[in-house]
Design a protein around this nucleic acid. Structure first.
Lengths: 209, 209
DNA sequence: GTCTATACTGAGATAGAC
DNA sequence: GTCTATCTCAGTATAGAC
């Protein structure tokens, strides 16, 4: 790997994390990295491709950790399905730890989720882990219909991405900053309840408790 | 309100909804609206301010509907707390209906949630409704600690924003397109389970703190 | 194969005449 | 209030030096 290429990646990661994607120009990046403007085009092709490579580089270890944890859990469980909480933790904790180490980058990732940009990254990178994860989920929650499971995973991703992206000083109530492990426990508890919820057969009827 | 200003707002809303924010230039908007380029800066100051006004305009009725539904529910319930599912529906359905009528705009809104821009919009617009909503939530779930409730509302917003923003042809599994009311039932069921979940007392590996 | 200098097109923003 | 003309800066593309 060329040193120029590496300098661009590192510098861009820093600047994007600090200021977001759009406000950082290629000229800022190349000036800060001490390389020529055209080097970005040569090594990456476009600004978007640079972002893509950058995110992939950071996301890879997250996914590897997910798969490794899943592997360990599977071996420990033998022929039994995994505990729902363990499964959720296996997926959430690596991302939360990354967010802990580089909060600005996590914020960037969360923001990119909302833009079309992350769609491809997510598919390519979280895809493989997601498939393994999905398979274990089916086994842990065998009574959940396939489409319902997909939707619930979708909701899970939303809760997770939002939490990683938005500062914990949310707009509702006063949450205050908290240690990532505590937040993780909260999410896992919430999502467990969601996944275990009975499927809605709700007709609009007045019912009080 | 100037007619020029109105034409800009309408045209921008249409174009942003169709193509997203970044790809639509001010020149596209003014050309399509039949007004002068400089008119945008005269009336709004910048492209971002234009987006802000536009979102505010669209968000207002959503919030009014939320508050109206909440009001109706409160009157019908007398002195009793509201049913959790009703509460969630009161918050979610107005947004989902808006998404139904203009899906591209919903996508745009969902995207903005993750950016600093929406923070202010959310505070200013969803703020009042959120406070009322929060108060009812406390009443419906009196055993939930205040901070836990705040976090769970946070997770709820994430699931919602993500669902509105990302095309339902998600990255996990195959969800396929669905009628908004069906999606709404799925989210409400999932979130109900989440809100009712026991608070995590999970001490699997207690090390830190 | 890498990197540099430089040019091109289109973006948002602005000044000042009317 | 509105328009024309113009400014600065963005991402991108290319020609050619090492």
């Amino acid at each position: 790997m060329s040193e120029t290429r590496l300098k661009i990646l590192d510098t861009a990661e820093r600047l994007f994390s600090e200021q977001g994607y759009a406000p950082v120009s290629l000229r800022h990046i190349t000036a800060a990295a001490g390389v020529n403007l055209a080097a970005i085009h040569y090594h990456f092709g476009s600004k978007e491709e640079l972002l893509y490579e950058l995110v992939m580089r950071k996301a890879a270890p997250v996914n590897e950790e997910r798969l490794a944890t899943l592997q360990r859990l599977r071996e420990a469980a033998g022929a039994n399905p995994l505990a729902l909480e363990d499964l959720l933790e296996a997926f959430l904790l690596p991302a939360i730890h990354t967010a802990e180490n580089s909060p600005a980058f996590a914020k960037l990732m969360g923001r990119l989720y909302g833009e079309g940009l992350m769609q491809e990254v997510a598919r390519k990178h979280f895809g493989p882990a997601a498939e393994r994860f999905l398979a274990e989920m089916r086994r842990t929650l065998p009574d959940l219909a396939e489409d319902e499971l997909s939707w619930r995973l979708h909701f899970m991703l939303g809760a997770m991405a939002y939490t990683l992206a938005i500062s914990p000083l949310g707009l509702l109530g006063r949450t205050g900053p908290e240690s990532p492990s505590r937040v993780a426990r909260r999410i896992v508890a919430f999502l467990s309840g969601g996944f275990r919820a009975p499927v809605a057969a709700r007709e609009k009827v007045e019912v009080s408790e």
